[in-house]
Design a protein around this nucleic acid. Sequence first.
DNA 1: CGATTTATTGATAGACATCAACGCGGGTGG
DNA 2: CCACCCGCGTTGATGTCTATCAATAAATCG
Lengths: 346, 346
Amino acid sequence: MKNILIIENDPDLLGKYSDILRNSGYEVTAALNSKLGINLAISKLPSLILCNTVLSDIDGFGVLSVLSRNPSTTKIPFVFLNALSTPDIVKKGIACGADDFVTKPFQGGQLVRSVEARINKNKNQTSLPISEVDNIHPHNGKGLEKLIDLISQCKIRHIKKKQMLYYESDHSQWLYLLIEGCIKTLKLTDDGRQMITGLYKPKSFIGLDTLLLDDPWLESAEATQNSSLYFISKSAIIDLLNEHVELNQHFIKILSANLHEKEDQLIELAYESVRKRLAQVLVRLNKDAVPIDQLDICRDELAGLAGIAIETVSRILTDFKERGLIERNGSQIQIIDLYGLIKMKS
Amino acid sequence: MKNILIIENDPDLLGKYSDILRNSGYEVTAALNSKLGINLAISKLPSLILCNTVLSDIDGFGVLSVLSRNPSTTKIPFVFLNALSTPDIVKKGIACGADDFVTKPFQGGQLVRSVEARINKNKNQTSLPISEVDNIHPHNGKGLEKLIDLISQCKIRHIKKKQMLYYESDHSQWLYLLIEGCIKTLKLTDDGRQMITGLYKPKSFIGLDTLLLDDPWLESAEATQNSSLYFISKSAIIDLLNEHVELNQHFIKILSANLHEKEDQLIELAYESVRKRLAQVLVRLNKDAVPIDQLDICRDELAGLAGIAIETVSRILTDFKERGLIERNGSQIQIIDLYGLIKMKS
DNA sequence: CGATTTATTGATAGACATCAACGCGGGTGG
DNA sequence: CCACCCGCGTTGATGTCTATCAATAAATCG
């Protein structure tokens, strides 16, 4: 029978939730404060944890952080119970690695449904294969093998399109490994325009650049599609790094490659015309896109990637279409003449 | 008595050079081919090596490369003898780590003078203190201590203002550590404009980004002032990296910081006006400049740093002067109102 | 199907590159 | 020692590229 741990200050509510879940056939462990909750989570290893955001001693986010750092409990689905789901709470919850949010008050059925859905979702995830992660092959060394072990012990979280993964200037607690979907990292200007500094495809790490620095995030990250990611605790990775030299060197190589990419973008931004920049962006997107060379990306993001205004994107795209370089249907773009785009001159 | 090794194919010339140097009071070791030369260099450890660029088996550049990789011979001053000093030879020589070039034919006195000057120069260099190199403190770990040891065993070379250190797409053999002067790294566009991707001040490493990648240089490096650098053999550094985890992590941190800098520049280039970009460049230059806040930099380089046209630089500087932000005398710029520059709006 | 977001098109103005001319110093060679 | 040239910096006139504002059209979503 599935065991569910509930952490909730209010004895009345705790009893109520317990009853609902027991009636649905779950075994329930109850904790009236966070310390007890953490201990019970570690000793009982429940199938799921329900936890109030507001607790007397350590708050819900703190509980989640502690359990995330412990390898044996990091993978347990963690659902927040809270009176209000303000954007701020959701933001903080995602940053800590929460799986779901249930807002009080709720109908009994809703709670059960959420719990069931979450447990089922996490059942499937364990079988996801890790291979060729950002050019990691297990035979490349003991360290990379250990890294793959570590990753496979981490919890997978899913975030929806347009949801933020983290925000600029927030404290960074995780290294992310994207499994599915697409994540963009961006910086905002004072007047609200975005510059997209990175566009991450499956099998790549997000956050390597702040891994060893104590700095907070220097950019925000947002899902452009529904995405699944491994949340890898920074402290665990750092422990691994301290033991395995080749892992460090692998990361150095990734960072070096990133640096070179950025430098190329720099010179492009400085001296190339907008036309050429947009063409380059299309070429780059095409390279690591699905084989159908059909890009599903909104104008806003193209503008952010090329560093130009949305209206100009629109204009240039129609121009490209008239010249037979691309085809458009809706917001989808199909590249017809890749060579023509590459050879685009200012 | 100082021992000098001469490597020269032609027996007549070899004899002639030997006589000249013997008459000036040097002990001379002669080698008629490169293999012998290398062996003698290692066994005798001469005070200086004279070597023809053109040799029968391994050419002069090859000899220098081999000796540079050997810790016991890397520090020996190495002077090329060549019939013509074409820019191409000088370029290749500098890339390999040559100290000087003497062009044949020459007067006997010239050879002696070059040799003496070189030996004296290299006498002084051994005492240069390495401290706080790019935030390296010896107490930060065994690896950093070893790194400092390694660096102190490396030869220091001096390159003059406007001389190139390396060229884009050349093979990279060294990691450089700047001691004195200033080095800029730049990329060129097809139409000859330059984008300066890095401006290195003393105590910083140059070439970290290609250290672990087998790629050739992706940018060129040029001295903006007379500069002195340690030439650190890549293979030696890599050996050290394989032994010391914390050294890798130190480099990861430097690379991460570089990456963040580049990202900041990206968003600036994309969305800020040229006025603001130039102001930022001045602020950045001022930060790590001499305390007198007097910048000696030509318009061309300001343009390359901000990614704008030289004429525009000129125009904006006069505007800044009229507003009392800076003062100009000749090509020197003095910042009057730093805060005003920082607060510059588009 | 209406409402709201997202994309396109047009008109306009401003910013900046480009071409061209000119002044200034410093080095070079007669 | 002076004239000359060359590189560098400044200034002016001009044209073009692209952001911005505004209006409309299309598409997406509930």
